[in-house]
């Protein structure tokens, strides 16, 4: 490094359009582990069955130089069609879904319901001593919700990881 780059690390959400073929996810993950890049979250699913395309959303962090490297390395993979830095290239909507299991009785149980209501989480399963809440939002909102549930009997969390899409009229 010649010292010209900015040393601060930033969080970037990157969307990658790939051929939906065996091994493509392994290529992407192997690239991150092999080159020592961070993965904070990664989601993948088919988005265009007819064209056989999947979309991978990766949240990573690094210096500006490293993030540029990550994008260049991703673009170099043969089955990759497109790499877009949603953080850099303009405003984007980011969402994550979490299922949160809280076990408790009495006042704690009531409190958990109240907080779920404030966060607009839905109750998708209930027993006499437990709830499963479904919450959708930005990752920090989900973090906050989970933190609040911690003392109220939080026993299990399952999160999807971030999906994201650019605001405005343009497709990927």
């Amino acid at each position: 490094m010649t010292g010209k780059h900015h040393p601060h690390k930033h969080r970037h959400t990157i969307a990658v359009l790939v051929d939906n073929e065996p091994g493509v996810l392994a290529r992407v993950i192997g690239l991150f582990s092999g080159r020592g890049y961070n993965i904070e979250s990664l989601t993948v699913a088919e988005v265009a069955a007819r064209e056989n395309l999947s979309r991978i959303t990766i949240v990573t962090s690094g210096t500006a130089q490293i993030v540029e490297q990550i994008k260049a390395q991703l673009s170099r993979l043969v089955p990759v069609h497109k790499v877009v830095d949603l953080t850099k290239d303009g405003p984007a909507v980011e969402r994550e879904l979490a299922l949160v299991k809280v076990v408790g009785i009495g006042e704690k149980r009531v409190e958990s319901l109240r907080i779920a209501d404030i966060f607009r989480a839905r109750t998708v399963d209930a027993t006499n001593e437990s709830f499963v809440f479904e919450i959708v939002g930005r990752s920090d909102k989900i973090d906050a919700f989970i933190n609040l549930m911690e003392p109220l009997g939080l026993v299990d969390v399952s999160r999807t990881g971030v999906v994201a899409i650019a605001r405005g009229t343009q497709p990927l």
């Binding site: 010649t2 780059h5 540029e68």
Partner: peptide
Amino acid sequence: TSAFSPHSKKIHIDIDPSSINKNIM
């Protein structure tokens, strides 16, 4: 790398975009 050719402007021709700004800006 921190002491590599400290006073030069650098032009880099490469077919692989990932080679650019990897080790040297």
